[in-house]
């Protein structure tokens, strides 16, 4: 596939969240608001791109049996970089995302792409794949976050659309995450079939 297809597949056709069903934990855990979803999505994209880059770079020097642990260490390193940088320069986002930032290291999207793509493709392809998948992931999280924030508190990105008292609190809580995601996946499946 050409690079344009490589880049855009992550948005709808092979969207990591809606289609590949990867990275469920942060998807449900941080999407109580649009900005949290976006922040997490972008942090994950950074890790995805950097990890894909490094893995693709050194794929020929890693013995096959030890490749998964090596990939994991590389990913963990970049996740820690994100952690430290956020703590220093974006402290409020750091507080909101909390536990889920170090959990980027076990986000199946990241390890999945490193193993399925970056370890078998060129550096440029891997970077583009990482970028496309990451942005697709961010799209999914922001969409879910916006939907939950809207239904739950009448706001999107903190802009009030209708008064909070008319919001359905359930959507900002755990059950709402599962339910909204379920319906969104159904929607995307429908779109993909069309």
């Amino acid at each position: 596939m050409n690079q344009l297809q490589n880049f855009t597949k992550g948005f709808i056709k092979e969207n990591p969240v809606f289609v590949l069903l990867l990275g469920m934990c942060p998807t449900l855990g941080v999407t109580s608001s649009a900005i949290n979803g976006l922040g997490m999505g972008l942090a994950t994209t950074f890790v995805l791109v950097m990890a894909n880059l490094v893995v693709s770079l050194i794929k020929n020097v890693i013995p096959s049996k030890v490749r998964i642990p090596s990939f994991i260490v590389i990913i963990a390193a970049f996740v820690t970089v994100v952690e430290l940088t956020m703590q220093a320069y974006l402290p409020s986002l750091f507080e909101s995302l909390g536990l889920f930032i170090p959990l980027i290291v076990v986000n199946c999207v990241v390890l999945g792409r490193a193993e399925a793509f970056a370890s078998k493709n060129t550096i440029v392809s891997s970077i583009i794949d990482g970028l496309g998948m990451g942005l697709g992931f961010s799209f999914a999280l922001t969409l879910l976050g916006a939907a939950r924030e809207f239904l739950g508190s009448g706001k999107i990105f903190d802009t009030i659309i209708f008064p909070e008292d008319y919001g359905m609190l359930l959507f900002v809580l755990a059950p709402g995450a599962f339910i909204v995601l379920g319906y969104l996946i159904a929607l995307i499946n429908r779109l993909n079939k069309a």
Binding site: K59, N60, V61, I62, P63, S64, K65, V66, P69, S70, V73, I74, A76, A77, T80, V81
Partner: peptide, 24 residues
């Protein structure tokens, strides 16, 4: 790809971790 001998594996993992920890 490099052969998966025990030495290669431990060495690789060690080097990767060491580099990662240093960068961090």
């Amino acid at each position: 790809q490099k052969e998966s001998t025990f030495l290669n594996m431990t060495l690789t993992l060690f080097v990767v971790t060491f580099v990662a920890a240093t960068v961090l």
